[in-house]
């Protein structure tokens, strides 16, 4: 079964564009997950349900005949509120718990939100209406590339650029980076824990909402499991890249998205169902070779889980 991989399909420009777009979106999700991990040492498994909520917001926006910008605004509102609620109701009471307890708790939150969505919105998937027109191809130098792919790449680059400025050029960014390295010492120097954590949570929510817009348009089928598999893949990417530094985490997220996109394009048609296996097999191999992260120097301070 695995040997069939030898007859790969040719790599085309649209495949590369799709892969870049997926890599871009996964990079944003990776930063969202990585920032919160940095300051709270919490792996947020429920990140995908934030994206699911955003997807449903877009779907209902279109159902209620909202304009595109209104739908997107609704998506950001819903995701942000949910992010803050999650932090207040679950993460904050668990702030001093072990990483294992926190991980299992986010697992529970994910399961909970997924089932609330199932109960509330039913098992049938919804679409995002007119937003899906963004899937139309653009002609770029004779190559047909989806509009949404271009938008995703541009937006991801823009977000990452702004974030990089925030982290390296502002006091808040400096405090966030220091808190991720050594929270205790940072606090002794006067870095305010609640502000740093609050900022990380809000930024991760904004990134989840942004990712939700792109993933919703690309897949155009919102159900209670929307965003779940993406989050699992991104989490794997983040750990593979290096969990506790923003740049390795981002690169990890991008790489796994890009790899998924490329593999999805070149695998022979009868092998595409094994895409998941190929990706996760690669994850295992990389983890065995570089357990502290592919893009980190030296040993990363990874918690025992």
């Amino acid at each position: 079964m695995i040997l069939g991989i030898l007859s790969l399909q040719p790599l085309t420009w649209p495949t590369v564009a799709t892969a870049l777009a997926l890599g871009g979106v996964y990079a944003l999700m990776a930063v969202g997950i990585g920032l919160v991990f940095g300051v709270l040492r919490l792996v947020n498994f429920a990140y995908g349900q934030l994206i699911m909520a955003g997807g449903y917001a877009l779907a209902y926006g279109s159902l209620w005949n909202f304009a595109t910008w209104q739908s997107i605004l609704l998506c950001f509102g819903v995701v942000l509120v949910l992010t803050v609620l999650m932090d207040r109701l679950v993460f904050r009471p668990l702030r001093t718990s072990s990483p294992t307890v926190m991980l299992v708790a986010t697992f529970a939150v994910a399961f909970l939100l997924q089932n609330i969505a199932l109960l509330k919105f039913g098992p049938l998937s919804k679409n995002v209406g007119s937003l899906a027109q963004l899937n139309a191809p653009w002609d770029i130098f004779g190559v047909q590339i989806k509009e949404i792919a271009v938008l995703a790449v541009v937006t991801a680059l823009g977000c990452l650029f702004i974030l990089q400025l925030l982290l390296t050029r502002t006091p808040l960014g400096l405090h966030m980076r220091a808190a991720a390295m050594d929270f205790r010492t940072a606090r002794l120097l006067g870095v305010r824990a609640n502000r740093v954590i609050g900022a990380a949570v809000i930024i991760s929510g904004l990134l989840a909402a942004t990712s939700a817009v792109f993933l919703s348009v690309q897949e155009n089928s919102i159900s209670s499991t929307f965003g779940l598999q993406d989050t699992i893949i991104v989490l794997a990417g983040v750990v593979v890249g290096g969990m506790n530094r923003p740049i390795p985490a981002t690169l990890g997220g991008f790489s796994i998205g890009f790899a998924t996109g490329i593999l999805g394009g070149v695998l022979p048609a009868d092998k595409t169902q094994y895409l998941t296996s190929f990706i996760f097999a690669a994850v295992i191999v990389v983890l065995l070779v570089r357990p502290n992260g592919l893009f980190t120097r030296g040993g990363g301070a990874v918690e025992r889980v």
Binding site: V43, L235, V239, M243
Partner: peptide, 9 residues
Amino acid sequence: LSGLAAGIA
């Protein structure tokens, strides 16, 4: 492996 790497693996 240990820690998160073990969890993800």
